[in-house]
Simulated assay, not measured.
Amino acid sequence: MESLYHQANRLVQETQQCFEKLEKVSDLNSDPIEKEIQARIDTITSICERLDIMVYKEPLTRRTNSKYRVDQVKYDKDHLQAALDTYKNRKYQRLQEEREREALLSHQFKLNNYEETAILMDHSQSFYSSKHHDSLKSANQGVDDMLQSGAGILESLKDQRMTLKGAHRRLYDIANTLGLSNTTMRLIERRAYQDRFILIGGIVFTCLVIAAIIYYFT
């Protein structure tokens, strides 16, 4: 078991040295070193499988320490495999980018037929311009309808105000005729004063709604 363990450690160190060589060569010349690294990693994997079997044959006093040493070798092996996979992925990306760059540089672009392009653009612009014009016309008509509706509401509120004012005047005259008390007259005036604020509030609210609609549609 000791000889296998030392052999695995020696392979780990040699594989790390192969990685140092791999960093110094170009991507086009790296295949032999990659194959060598993968072969060493496969050998270490095979040795670890044999060591796993031999660990359980060790005495109980040495089994824990032996298993720890084997696990350390397996960890180093997994780290080497991950490093190799990462290198291969980066190499593939570099080669792919290089091929795409060469394809782009070697590609010959052809000029479009000006007349055909102009016709398509004119037709497209005419279609979208007409569609945009129809949308604006519809929105403008909607805003005009809302303005007319708002004007009608304001006129109706104005008429209601005049009606309330006339009713207040008639009530005041009736009260004077009937000789109502000053307290009753003050209550009537207070109610008329409150109705005035309600009317003003309704007018302001309607104006705000109309202004918001005009802002939204324009």
Rank of each mutant, 00 (worst) to 15 (best):
I47K: 01
T64K: 11
Y172D: 13
I37F: 00
M146S: 12
R196L: 14
I188C: 03
L178S: 11
T163V: 00
G142R: 15
N176T: 15
D85I: 07
L154Q: 11
G201C: 02
E34C: 12
S129H: 07
R94C: 06
Y92D: 15
R101I: 06
F109K: 06
R90S: 10
V204F: 04
D159V: 11
R94H: 05
G166I: 00
A192Q: 09
L199S: 06
K131W: 06
R10V: 09
A118F: 10
R63G: 00
I214G: 12
I200H: 07
A167G: 15
L104M: 07
H123K: 10
G166V: 00
A103R: 11
R161W: 05
R99F: 02
A192D: 08
R69I: 01
Y172Q: 10
R63V: 03
Q108E: 13
M162Y: 11
R69T: 04
M185N: 10
I213C: 01
L51K: 00
D27N: 15
T163D: 08
A175Q: 06
E2W: 05
E155V: 03
I153S: 02
A82I: 08
V204P: 01
R50T: 14
K77N: 15
D159K: 15
A39Q: 15
Q148K: 15
A151T: 05
F217D: 13
N113K: 11
A139K: 10
H79Y: 14
N29E: 11
S130D: 14
Y114H: 08
R69F: 01
E2T: 11
C207L: 06
E115A: 12
D159G: 12
M146N: 08
N140E: 03
L28R: 13
L11F: 13
S106F: 01
E97Q: 07
Q38Y: 05
L178R: 13
L157P: 01
Q81G: 12
K67Y: 02
D31S: 10
T218K: 10
T45M: 04
L180E: 10
S138H: 09
P59M: 06
L80C: 00
L136D: 09
R186T: 13
R161I: 05
T86P: 01
M54W: 06
R63T: 01
G152R: 15
L22T: 02
L208Q: 08
G166L: 00
H132P: 00
Y172P: 00
Q93Y: 03
A83K: 15
Q148C: 10
I210M: 09
K21V: 08
K158Q: 09
E116I: 14
D78R: 09
I47V: 04
K91P: 04
D134W: 01
S130I: 09
N176M: 14
N113H: 14
F127T: 09
L157I: 04
A118T: 10
E2R: 08
H107Y: 07
V55N: 00
R90D: 11
